[in-house]
Amino acid sequence: MEQLLNDNEALIRQITEIVTTGGVNVLLALGILIVGYIVAGAVERAVKRVSERNPRIDKTLATFFASLARYAILAVVFIAVLSRFGVETTSLVAAIGAAAFAVGLALQGTLSNVASGVMLVFFRPYSLGDFVEVAGVSGTVADMNLFTTELTTSDNKTIIVPNGQAWGGVITNFTVKPTRRVDITYSISYDDDIDKAMDVIRAHYEADERVHKEPEFFLGVISHGASSIDIVTRAWTNTADYWGVYFDAMKGIKQAFDKNDIEIPYPHEVQIQKKG
């Protein structure tokens, strides 16, 4: 009888110990969850706030970094909670790593676009509203995120460019600078007066108020062609006025040449026949 009582007391002590330990673990796990959740939120807000203060970091990138920090902390909290209940976290971490590696291989193209998107948003080779040429296509940047860049073409088509292709190729930004140089070459006949033609060209550009005085307008003979003398012009203007200056010059110089009897020659061939 006494032995039975001793066994019951031992069993009760074991049950009490298990319950007490389990209760403590539950309370500790709950505390870790609460503290971890609070810390993750605080770190997320801090990272986002610091990132948004940096002019080189876009809001999209700031949100991405903040979310990345939050979920990294929550992952550590989750592993810590499991360890309180005796779960072998080493095997779990290895399994998660293997799964992440497999997912990374399956989504390497997508992850490449994300990495390129981070680089594009951070280094800012172009911004919303810029007219650019990327991956062999050109248009105005309508939207950009971590995966793609959306361009709107001059004829109002939408082109979606994966960021991996945009970052991996040559990027030409036509509007990032406040001024641009308008380069046009005009051809005149070998029989025309070169100085007269250059005076006519210069008069047109000097009359155009959109052409800057500095840097100074330049023109000069650039080549002796097969059937023409070629005169190059280089005029600086505001980026927004580039095409207006270009189109008006192409039309105005032609009309000025006509008024001054300056010929724009056509390519021609001279055939020489030998007498037999």
Rank of each mutant, 00 (worst) to 15 (best):
P55K: 07
T149C: 03
I73M: 12
I15Y: 13
T60C: 00
I15F: 13
I188M: 02
A102E: 01
V221W: 04
W167E: 00
W243N: 15
H212L: 14
V103D: 05
F64A: 04
V121T: 00
F78Q: 03
F101W: 02
Q255C: 01
K48M: 08
G36D: 03
L27D: 02
A166S: 15
A100R: 09
I12H: 05
V221S: 03
K213A: 14
A10P: 01
G109E: 13
D199I: 11
K196M: 03
D193H: 01
T63D: 11
T21K: 13
F131L: 01
N156W: 07
A203D: 14
G109V: 12
A197R: 04
T149Y: 00
N238C: 10
D248Y: 03
T90L: 10
T175P: 07
E206N: 02
R124D: 04
N25D: 10
K213V: 08
V50C: 06
M198L: 00
Y71K: 12
V176N: 07
G139S: 06
I32T: 09
T158A: 05
M144R: 09
G276W: 12
A100C: 05
I184K: 01
H224W: 08
A235K: 00
I194R: 07
V132W: 04
V39E: 04
S112D: 02
D155M: 00
Q3H: 13
F217S: 12
R13Q: 13
A235F: 03
A100I: 11
D193Y: 01
I272W: 07
A235M: 06
A42S: 08
T110Y: 14
V270I: 12
T158C: 00
Q14M: 11
Q271V: 13
V93P: 11
K274G: 11
F78A: 14
Y205K: 11
L28I: 11
V182N: 03
A72G: 01
N6W: 07
R49A: 10
N54F: 07
D143P: 05
D199W: 09
H212W: 02
R181C: 10
F247N: 15
Y126E: 00
V270C: 00
T89D: 02
A203W: 02
D130R: 00
E133S: 02
N6V: 14
S127E: 05
F247P: 06
D193L: 02
G22Q: 15
F257T: 09
T233V: 05
V26W: 11
A100P: 04
D130V: 03
A69H: 03
K177G: 08
Y205H: 14
T110L: 15
A166H: 14
I229C: 04
K275W: 11
Q165K: 06
V114Y: 04
H224V: 15
V211D: 08
A135P: 02
I264T: 10
A240P: 05
I229D: 04
D191Q: 10
A235I: 09
V26K: 10
N113L: 02
G22C: 09
N260S: 03
V81N: 05
T175Q: 01
A207G: 11
